[in-house]
Design a protein around this nucleic acid. Structure first.
Length: 263
DNA sequence: ATGGCCAATATGATTGGA
């Protein structure tokens, strides 16, 4: 079973690329971020035509997450607990059934946090604290769990082409990295790092300043696995070539293969 | 080679992204 994540930077602008990539990678479950549209205007039909069930949690203009699944949804829950006043559409969780039991998947769009001298950075840090608490509770279930999405966090200097450019950025500040580390230290496996120690593994290249042409990338889209999911990890990868397509997102898909089968 | 983008919005300038 393949589980993937992709920040598409507008689902309405990325329809052709998304369908082309789905045909190529053949994922069973896909977590999408930055869909940037309300649920009633989410283009479900071309995805349903490919055999996907579609769960959406969007809002006007910004943010927005979704999950596509060839397996039927047993449960779908929007919103990360811990702040009723938070109205950003950044979190969607689904449960599907496999031959060996439930698989839980969450699509995560963690706040960017820039500029750091505004309330955006404290909002990011509080969101990371909420994700920590949610994860600690979910791990107690001892289920296969995949937390997949755009974390807006560069875990280490090995995950950025030019670290000096990012030292004062909300994605790379020591506090951001410490909170990301605290999250994984709960017992989550960073799937890409579980299969490769290589540098130069990036998932985002800015549209500006020739970042793609210079390979000035960062790795901020992650699939974090609970121990029962990590035990089933076969391989993982990043579909870098998608960044060179016409009309690309600034992010590319990342994916894992799990030794799990649909029920 | 110093800069260079893209998307949404009652849109033609502003906001947000990373």
């Amino acid at each position: 079973m393949i589980v993937a994540t992709w920040n598409v930077n507008s689902i309405r602008q990325r329809g052709e690329n998304l369908v082309a990539w789905l045909r190529e990678r053949q994922p069973d479950i896909v977590c999408l971020q930055e869909t940037k549209t309300q649920d009633e205007s989410f283009p479900r039909e071309p995805l349903e035509a490919l055999g996907y069930n579609v769960a959406v949690h969007g809002q006007k203009t910004f943010n927005g997450v979704a999950i596509l699944s060839k397996l039927p949804f047993d449960e779908v829950t929007a919103r990360l607990p811990g702040d009723e006043a938070d109205d950003h559409a950044r979190f969607l969780e689904a449960v599907v059934s496999t031959k060996t039991g439930a698989l839980r998947v969450a699509s995560i769009y963690l706040p960017n946090g820039n500029p750091t001298n505004t309330d955006k950075y404290p909002y990011k840090l509080k969101w990371m604290d909420r994700l920590f608490k949610y994860t600690r509770e979910r791990l107690a279930l001892e289920e296969p769990l995949v937390l997949a999405g755009d974390y807006n966090a560069i875990p280490s200097g090995a995950d950025v082409h030019n670290p000096e450019l990012w030292v004062n950025d909300a994605l790379f500040l020591p506090t951001t990295r410490a909170k990301f580390r605290a999250l994984t230290n709960l017992g989550l496996t960073d799937a890409i790092r579980a299969v490769s120690d290589e540098g130069g593994l990036y998932t985002f290249w800015d549209y500006q300043a020739g970042a793609w042409q210079k390979n000035n990338g960062i790795r901020i889209d992650h699939l974090l696995l609970s121990p029962p999911a990590a035990d089933r990890l076969v391989t993982a990868g990043i579909d870098k070539h998608v960044r060179s397509w016409e009309k690309p997102s600034d992010h590319v898909p990342a994916w894992i293969e799990l030794a799990l089968e649909a029920r």
